[in-house]
Nucleic acid binder design. Structure first.
Lengths: 69, 69
DNA sequence: TAATTTTTACTGCTATAACAGTAATTGATG
DNA sequence: CATCAATTACTGTTATAGCAGTAAAAATTA
């Protein structure tokens, strides 16, 4: 849930996509600082910015609860 | 991925947990406005605030990509 | 229907995320 | 090693999310 390292996860996918932080930032329409912060697991980033980055990298979000499992 | 209605998803889980927006906000350590915004799908909320709410409701996040599937 | 609770909406104010710019490290590549 | 590219780090400024407070609108309950 939480100890999952989203930063490196994104970093790895960015690398595999052959993108630099700046390129990813431009594609996602965010500043380079934001991409840097995300890869450093800064949790105060805004959801829309994170989603924009995930979209570029073709990463999907799923919400799982014991209920609707 | 994206058309998923996170707001009502969270709202439903909050109801099932028998919590009001204010109670959920207090438990999560955020303001009531933030809970309200999240349930209204305001995507500019900060990730840490969203995570705090998800934690209270026992909802887990998963990131899926075509690669590590 | 009246009373109570909950949700939605709006308002200043404050804290800070996001930004561009710059610079210093680190990492590749020749 | 030297050069260039990429990443990390820090800065001042600006835009805005988050907040408490209040109030009005829905929903719930008696």
């Amino acid at each position: 849930m939480d100890d999952f390292d989203l930063g490196t996860f994104i970093k790895d996918h960015r690398k595999k996509a052959g993108l630099t932080q700046l390129e990813l930032a431009d594609l996602a329409g965010v500043g380079k600082t934001t991409v840097f912060d995300i890869e450093k697991n800064k949790e105060t980033v805004r959801l829309n910015n994170l989603l924009a980055v995930l979209r570029v990298l073709n990463i999907k979000l799923e919400f799982k609860s014991p209920l609707n499992k």
